[in-house]
């Protein structure tokens, strides 16, 4: 029954997936409560161009995607602030532009379309050892920063004005959250693919928010749901010969749906 654990490719996928799942889950709670759920989706589209650039220049696509996602995240933040655009408008503008650039690059250089397919739909079972260590290191960094700034992040998410009046450096923390989101999106892209990465950021956190009475509990439930989805999804993928990205996201959705029903009954 546990034979899958003896395969190197499965061990690598499981190891990277677990860390990335926790990073996504913790950050997702802040994104949802800041009404910023779509930023993951938007930055994921931009990473498509980043991956295409990486493949074109024969640089590790994870690096180019990371740089482009961080830069775009910061630009979206500035545009929202300076141009007075609604958050979702700025995200829509930059995500579609990023995706358009990706499509253009693919059409100009058709020899990497197969590689790109793996980034679009995710192929965690094919993750390289180098990518595993990079993912684990970045995921750990994200988790560390989120936990280190847990209280000021929570304060500015809950009551921005009071946080500012208490000396919390809200603009710096906004920037930090944007950078963490961009990193997490790129990590999630490797696990479930560009098209489904927003799900990994949002669904476990949304599930946690259904039942939690405190912020800590919301983050804990979110992390458990994310771990359950990634571990269970990989297991189902292996035995059912199914795409791992789809099984991971569908398991996360099942948990969300279950918690949603439980919450409804509690209120009922």
């Amino acid at each position: 029954m546990m034979e899958f654990l003896s395969y190197g490719f499965f061990q690598r996928a499981l190891f990277a997936g677990v860390f990335v799942a926790v990073a996504c889950a913790l950050l997702g709670v802040f994104l949802i409560l800041r009404r910023d759920s779509m930023i993951g989706h938007g930055l994921a589209h931009v990473t498509f161009a980043g991956v295409a650039i990486g493949l074109m220049l024969q640089i590790v696509p994870l690096f180019t995607a990371l740089i482009l996602a961080v830069l775009t995240g910061l630009i979206i933040m500035k545009v929202k602030e300076k141009a007075g655009l609604y958050g979702d408008t700025a995200i829509a503008i930059f995500s579609s532009t990023g995706f358009a650039v990706g499509i253009l690059l693919v059409s100009l250089s058709q020899d990497f379309s197969v590689d790109l397919f793996a980034y679009l739909f995710g192929d965690i079972l094919a993750i390289e050892t180098f990518e595993v260590w990079l993912s684990v290191a970045l995921a750990l960094a994200v988790v560390f920063v989120v936990l280190r700034y847990y209280h000021p992040f929570m304060f500015l998410t809950f009551d921005r004005e009071s946080a500012m009046a208490s000396g919390v450096k809200v603009k710096r923390l906004d920037m930090l959250l944007t950078i963490l989101t961009a990193i997490t999106v790129v990590l999630g892209m490797k696990v479930v693919g560009i098209l489904l990465v927003a799900a990994l950021l949002v669904i476990p956190a949304a599930a946690g928010l259904q039942l939690a009475a405190s912020f800590k509990l919301a983050m804990a439930i979110s992390a458990v749901v994310a771990l359950f989805s990634v571990i269970g999804g990989l297991f189902l993928s292996f035995y059912g010969d199914l795409p791992a990205s789809a099984t991971i996201v569908l398991l996360a959705f099942s948990a969300f749906f279950l918690f949603y029903i439980i919450k409804g009954q509690k209120r009922g």
Partner: peptide, 28 residues
């Protein structure tokens, strides 16, 4: 500081009374 409309909060925001008070001291 207690801002105007401080009580106009998201009723489903998952934060306990203790966590709200802790924000003031742990965010310094």
């Amino acid at each position: 500081y207690v801002p105007q409309n401080a009580t106009h909060i998201d009723p489903y925001f998952p934060v306990s009374v203790q966590e709200v008070v802790a924000m003031g001291i742990k965010s310094l």
